[in-house]
Design a protein around this nucleic acid. Structure first.
Length: 466
DNA sequence: GCATGATCATGC
DNA sequence: GCATGATCATGC
């Protein structure tokens, strides 16, 4: 069959692809498409390959358009309230072959062979629509900007080293910056062999983090880039230093200095009461204008947490996370849960310590939760879910000497786990979310908003002191 | 001095 | 009106 484009000519393929813009699959594909069973995830790409580009979907290590070394990837967009497009999810690339990758260099890797040149097709996902009716919004060829490629190379090496160390089963998306190792497979039973351990490892694929995909989208859509400030000014710097090294080297001159001293050195006037105080102080130390976003942090989805330590090194407060909704958490499973998703990010901790009434910068630390602790949090999460499902949140009341009544709950406390616990996080006890099952003790159908917290002692022992 | 339940302040 | 980071109050 004659193809409507020349598969040996990159421009011809791209030109043909760009005709997709503004159209749906139903509009551009030939009619026998309706006989194809296309429902389900991932099939947008399959229909596109088979019925628009006219080749059979494959899963070889070679790029889809083998003669020109270009890979086809389609991915969903979501629309924000202000009509801007964002990626709906991470962009999943090729499966990690644990057995082969340990014998490869980045330059000759399966990853590079497959993904050096990608034909990207972004479509607008709309709830309730058939995949054939999603409108294609953005089409373009994409290859790694040279600075990003250096970060991605280090990410690839981090992933490869973990496999070479016999720890493929401990891989986490938080290990890396732009390129993640995300789980891929129907369920937790999708496992495969790893070369240096007998423990089966979850099947994983390389993926661009959602934050990174957003920047690809902005670049293809030619959106303005002035709103971002860069930590890494050039490829030369990216070759020499990691994001982590650059950030630490910028913070180090301020270690041991108080907030006031830092503001004086930076010649900066910030409102200490303002909610954005620490975010702005961080930007100023990193040399980023206050009105700009830190590009590398956005791409890597790094979460910054400021911690104030007491003189005895214990953080003054535990670290809170967004409140969970009772009727949602009971339907989640741990692997796809909101809290696990948050904990699989990369964090930057900024530690201040009280010293003679002043707050002194001690250090900054990049951190992501180790595998063993994630297993521990799973227990906390599972217990929390069970308490809600059983309708046994409250176990008793307590009245203080002023006659004020508080409730005692069965949620996992600090005693239950050294890592994490569950506590209220609300305006007051009347600030509630609905319960999926009435609480047996109080007969309440809704309950004060709660969230998961990281124990302050855990933050001290496993993040600050390590 | 800490754990736990409760609440506040800011900013969008 | 709510999310988020921060803080308070009480009892052991």
């Amino acid at each position: 069959m004659k193809l409507p484009y020349n598969p040996k000519d990159k421009n011809s393929v791209i030109e043909y692809a760009k005709k997709l813009k503004g159209k749906s699959l139903r509009q551009v594909c030939n009619t026998n498409i309706l006989e194809h069973s296309y429902s389900g995830k991932g099939n947008f790409g399959q229909v596109l390959e088979k019925f628009y580009f006219g080749y059979e979907p494959n899963s070889t290590a070679e790029a889809d358009f083998a003669q020109i070394g270009m890979e086809l990837k389609s991915s969903p967009l979501k629309k924000l309230k202000n009509n801007e497009f964002r990626s709906k999810e991470r962009l999943v690339l090729n499966i990690i072959n644990y057995l082969n990758v340990v014998n490869q260099n980045f330059e000759n890797s399966d990853f590079i062979k497959k993904n050096s040149s990608i034909l990207l097709i972004f479509y607008l996902h709309q709830v309730g629509y058939d995949i054939l009716d999603f409108i294609i919004k953005l089409v373009d060829e994409w290859s790694f900007p040279s600075t990003d490629l250096e970060i991605i190379k280090k990410d690839w090496e981090t992933i490869t080293k973990k496999i070479a160390d016999g720890k493929a089963h401990e891989l986490s998306e938080g290990d890396t910056y732009y390129l993640g190792a995300c789980t891929k497979g129907a369920n937790a039973l999708s496992v495969r062999k790893q070369p240096f351990s007998d423990i089966p490892a979850k099947q994983r694929a390389y993926s661009f983090k959602q934050g990174y995909v957003n920047h690809i989208i902005a670049s293809i859509a030619n959106e303005p880039t002035e709103i971002y400030g860069k930590l890494i000014p050039s490829v030369a710097v990216a070759k020499k230093q990691t994001i982590e090294e650059i950030v630490i080297s910028k913070f180090k001159p301020y270690y041991g200095k108080s907030e006031e001293e830092i503001l004086t050195i930076l010649d900066l006037k910030l409102n200490k009461k303002a909610k954005s105080f620490y975010a702005n102080l961080t930007k100023a130390i990193l040399g980023i204008s206050l009105e700009k976003e830190i590009e590398e942090f956005e791409k890597a989805e790094i979460k910054v947490k400021t911690v104030r330590l007491k003189e005895n090194n214990l953080p003054k407060e535990d670290i809170s996370f967004p409140t969970f909704k009772y009727d949602e958490i009971v339907n989640e499973d741990w692997e796809n849960s909101e809290f696990k998703n948050i904990l699989e990010h990369k964090f930057l901790f900024v530690f201040f310590q009280f010293e003679n009434e002043k707050l002194v910068l001690r250090k900054v630390k990049f951190w992501n939760m180790p595998y063993s602790d994630l297993l521990e949090v799973e227990k906390v999460w599972a217990k929390t879910q069970q308490v809600i499902i059983n309708g046994k949140i409250v176990r008793g009341f307590k009245t203080n000497k002023n006659g004020k009544v508080t409730r005692e709950t069965n949620f996992p406390d600090k005693e239950f786990s050294k890592v994490s616990h569950v506590r209220p996080h609300a305006l007051n006890s009347a600030d509630t979310y609905p319960l999926p099952k009435q609480d047996k003790f109080t007969k309440l159908n809704e309950y004060t908003k709660h969230c998961f917290w990281l124990n302050n002692s855990y933050v001290r022992d496993e993040i600050y002191l390590k």
